[in-house]
């Protein structure tokens, strides 16, 4: 059964700094979610609250109606993977995993072994002596093999090179199909990962500015190119994300879908319509100088 996550007006202050402001959302579960935000937007803080590592200043997060903070039952259901250095850890990879798996009732050691082989993780080296990339892989392996109903990867790919990231994405998708669960991936590498998401949440300056079906979001912006006056005429009154003039030509990106009538109107004005990528949408929705 899917685990429903509900965040209710979560705010977090940290040393007088407002990190999260009034964040509310609901996740139905058994989907792959993308949490997008710029560096410092509050992604890790939000996920830390969800994983019960941090108590919110106000508001709460509940899983199936149970508050997560200091709730052992719920905490067992959540694994939170961050790409942190393991310089102080002793022991080799398998021992390290075995020790951790005690707290993970669904931990699949066979799957972990297969992943060790796929990532070519050295098993005869102390964890603390592993390279950055291999430490990242070890984190990812633990996150996947734990098979927790709620699995969170907070920029877990950071230390991985491109081939390792490819393996990671493939394993996330495969294992999700075989063992459906709620997977939350936070990232700012949007173009590389966006196709994996079913729903996308965008956080900016500590606030949730978007929670939408990924395909809907991908389809919710339009670029308009044509003669300056014609473009101005067409975009007047629409939600403009970006405008750029090059000689007599203007490019405008607008947010929102066009009606059949508007498409005809654009044709009549000899405008070229095109899609805009999730990456572009993200950049314009989260840029600092927006009004």
């Amino acid at each position: 059964m899917p685990h429903k996550i509900k965040a209710d007006k979560v705010s977090l202050q940290f040393q007088n700094k407002q990190v999260l402001t009034n964040i509310s959302f609901e996740l139905e579960g058994e989907k792959i979610y993308g949490l997008l935000g710029r560096n410092g937007a509050g992604k890790t803080s939000l996920l830390s609250v969800l994983a019960a590592f941090v108590k919110p200043t106000s508001g709460s997060i509940a899983v199936d109606g149970e508050h997560v903070f200091e709730n052992a039952n719920v905490m067992e259901q959540i694994v939170f993977i961050r790409d942190v250095k393991m310089d102080d850890e002793n022991g080799k990879a398998k021992k390290y995993m075995k020790d951790l798996s005690i707290f993970r009732p669904n931990f699949d050691m066979d799957y972990a072994e297969r992943l060790i082989q796929r990532f070519k993780l050295p098993t005869d080296t102390e964890v603390s002596k592993l390279s950055r990339g291999m430490q990242s892989a070890l984190h990812a392996i633990i996150g996947l093999a734990s098979r927790c109903p709620i699995t969170i990867f907070d920029e877990a790919y950071l230390g991985m090179d491109a081939p390792a990231r490819e393996i990671f994405y493939e394993e996330v998708l495969n294992d999700f199909m075989e063992h459906p669960r709620t997977i939350i991936l936070s990232t700012h590498l949007i173009s590389e990962m966006e196709s994996m998401f079913e729903e996308v949440l965008i956080i900016d300056q500590g606030q949730m500015i978007m929670h939408e079906d990924a395909e809907t979001l991908r389809d919710s912006g339009v670029s308009v190119t044509g003669a300056v006056e014609q473009v101005d005429l067409f975009v007047n009154g629409k939600h403009i994300l970006k405008e750029q003039v090059l000689g007599g030509t203007k490019l405008a990106m607008i947010y929102g879908q066009l009606s059949e009538q508007e498409i005809e109107e654009a044709k009549a004005l000899k405008l070229t319509l095109g899609p805009i990528t999730l990456q572009e949408l993200f950049i314009h929705l989260t840029k600092e100088d927006k009004q």
Partner: peptide
């Protein structure tokens, strides 16, 4: 199959189903 397309293009299974 859905699985083939998901693995090949690294896309969400719900998207393939749609």
């Amino acid at each position: 199959s859905t699985n083939q397309l998901v693995a090949y293009y690294k896309i969400n299974p719900a998207t393939v189903l749609k």
